[in-house]
C-alpha cells in the first residue's frame, strides 16, 4: 500500500504539472514558419487551380495543394526552396510585364494562357534563363499533382477530394478477400 502524498510532495507535484501543461500549450501554439509569404501562397494557390481546376470536384487550391508544397519545402523539398523563391517572383514579374497585374489577379483563362507560354518557353526577355520557365513550371505542376493525388497526411488531398473523384473508398476497406465477379 502506497503512502498518500505528503503536503510537500503534493505542492511539488502540482507545481510540476502546472509547468508541464504550460510547456505543452506553448508547444501547441508553436507553428514552424511557413515557407511561403502570403503573396507567394496566393500565387501557388492560383497555380494549383490551374493544374487541377475546380469543377464539381474541388480544385488544387481547395484540396490544400499549397499547404502540401509549403510543408514539403520545409522537409524533403528544402532543396527546391530557392527555385520556388526565385521562380514565383519571376512568374509574377512575367505576369506584370505581359498582363499588367500579378498572376493571382488575372482572369482564369488569362492565367492559363500565361502558363502555356511559360511551358513553351515563350517568355519576355530578361526574366528567365533559357529553359528555366519551362523547367520551373513543370516542377510546380508535378508538385501540385503530388499534393492533389497523394496521401492527405502530407497536407494536400483535403477530405480525400481526389480519391473520391476516382471512386476509391477512403479509407481503404480492409479484408476484401472475395474477388468480385
Amino acid at each position: 500500500m502506497q503512502d498518500p502524498l505528503s503536503r510537500r510532495q503534493f505542492i511539488l507535484v502540482s507545481a510540476l504539472s502546472a509547468a508541464a501543461s504550460a510547456f505543452w500549450s506553448a508547444c501547441a501554439r508553436f507553428q514552424p514558419a511557413p515557407a511561403f509569404t502570403p503573396e507567394e501562397r496566393r500565387l501557388v494557390e492560383a497555380l494549383a487551380d490551374q493544374v487541377i481546376p475546380p469543377d464539381d470536384v474541388p480544385g488544387g487550391k481547395d484540396a490544400g495543394v499549397a499547404e502540401f508544397i509549403d510543408r514539403q519545402l520545409r522537409g524533403p523539398y528544402r532543396r527546391h526552396r530557392q527555385a520556388y523563391r526565385s521562380g514565383l517572383a519571376k512568374i509574377d514579374e512575367t505576369s506584370r510585364r505581359t498582363a499588367g497585374a500579378p498572376f493571382a489577379e488575372l482572369a482564369f483563362d488569362r492565367q492559363t494562357a500565361l502558363l502555356q507560354a511559360l511551358e513553351a518557353d515563350r517568355v519576355p526577355e530578361g526574366i528567365w534563363a533559357p529553359g528555366e520557365a519551362r523547367e520551373f513550371f513543370r516542377l510546380v505542376a508535378d508538385h501540385c499533382l503530388q499534393g492533389y493525388y497523394g496521401s492527405p497526411r502530407h497536407g494536400g488531398n483535403r477530405n480525400f477530394a481526389s480519391w473520391k473523384m476516382l471512386g476509391l473508398d477512403t479509407p481503404q476497406v480492409l479484408g476484401r478477400v472475395v474477388v468480385k465477379g
Binding site: Q50, V51, A141, L145, Y149, W163, L166, L168
Partner: peptide, 20 residues
Amino acid sequence: PYLFTNVRPPGSARWGRGHK
C-alpha cells in the same frame, strides 16, 4: 492516383481541365 498522372497517350494535356 499520382502514378496514374504519368499514364497518358502521347500529346495529352499534363495539367488543366484536360488532365483532370
